[in-house]
Amino acid sequence: MELRGILHGLTHEYHGKDKPVDYYLQIGEERMPLNEWLGSELSITFLGEKNCIACGRKTNKTFNSGYCYPCFTKLPENDLCIVKPHECHFDLGTCRDESFGETYCMIPHLVYLAVSSDMKVGLTRKHNQLKRWVDQGAIRAIPIAEVPTRRMAGQLEFHLSQYLPDKTNWRKMLKGDVKEIDLLAMRDEVYSHFPDEFKPFQYREDEWVDITYPILESLDKINSKTLDKEEKLGGRLIGVKAQYLIFDNGVFQTRKHAGYQVEITATPSA
């Protein structure tokens, strides 16, 4: 199998805890099903050109996973408040795009606990949680609050980050070396740290989500591979997790390379 085009990262479909997530590598308008190529040789060749994933223009350098500099500085999805939602400035009238803010930020959000490298706290739009959890490589997650806006979710997450990490250790996440954690007990402990104004928004469902990833083998050492250093890379595909392709000789972060023109070749293993 061979595909050429602009790399857009991984998409996925969740089918329940007893089945591995189905992963697809997005190349232009085509999707390459990755689960069926596990155990096969997969190569990625950089064709020497980068294009903005928003406007399509050629660019020497991409920003924020695939944007040219003008789109990075102008598009609302690249505003600083996206990564620091507690600093949302929609109410100040300085949002880059008011319609984007109304659609993306001024809607219900969930604050959650997830186990990826360790326990962490995070936030996501309501009904987008599965995508978010898989993209982070979480193996288990549970919502702990539902709030009306992204800014409120960011404020609660920022407050709780005093007691819990809000970042994922990607190397530890890929190794899968995670201790067993009682999510419900941890949730009850975290509730004791809720500010009074957020207590009415506590999410009391006792159901959590377990996520299984398509992984044949584990790596003892995590080596990151990048097309900025190697024109061609790859190896035997032994797993997929979060936004990473896991080869027998290292890992490749697909989203980091969004916008790169590539050629993907998959060859069945002998």
Score class of each variant (00 low, 15 high):
N78D: 03
H86R: 09
L123E: 12
Y67C: 05
L110Q: 05
I139C: 05
T73F: 08
L233Y: 00
C71Q: 07
P85V: 00
S116N: 10
L237R: 00
F198H: 04
L160Y: 01
E36F: 11
L245N: 00
A242H: 07
L38I: 04
G5R: 07
E2K: 14
V240E: 01
D248E: 05
Y23N: 02
L216I: 11
Y163I: 04
K232C: 02
I82D: 07
E102V: 15
T62F: 03
P165E: 02
G5M: 08
K225C: 01
E77I: 15
D166V: 04
L123V: 15
E217S: 09
D182P: 09
F194Y: 12
T45D: 03
V83Q: 07
P85D: 00
G239C: 03
K126S: 10
K131F: 14
R150F: 10
R96H: 07
E230A: 07
K172S: 09
Y67W: 05
V83H: 09
E77W: 07
R151S: 09
H257G: 02
S40G: 05
P143G: 08
P165C: 04
V83D: 06
Y69G: 08
E146F: 11
K232V: 01
Y14I: 09
A270F: 11
E230F: 02
T103V: 09
L92S: 11
V251N: 03
L10Q: 04
D79V: 12
T73I: 14
K167W: 08
I238M: 00
F72Y: 12
N60D: 13
G101K: 08
T265Y: 00
P214G: 12
K126R: 08
K256Y: 12
T45G: 02
E180M: 13
E2R: 09
A145M: 02
N78L: 05
P20Y: 06
H159I: 10
I107N: 09
P200K: 10
P20H: 05
L10A: 07
G250A: 03
S43E: 02
F100Q: 05
P165V: 04
P20F: 06
K131Q: 12
Y203F: 15
F72C: 09
Y24S: 08
L34G: 00
Q129R: 15
R187T: 03
A258G: 11
L160W: 01
E13D: 13
Q162V: 12
L227M: 02
T94V: 14
Y14K: 13
Y67I: 02
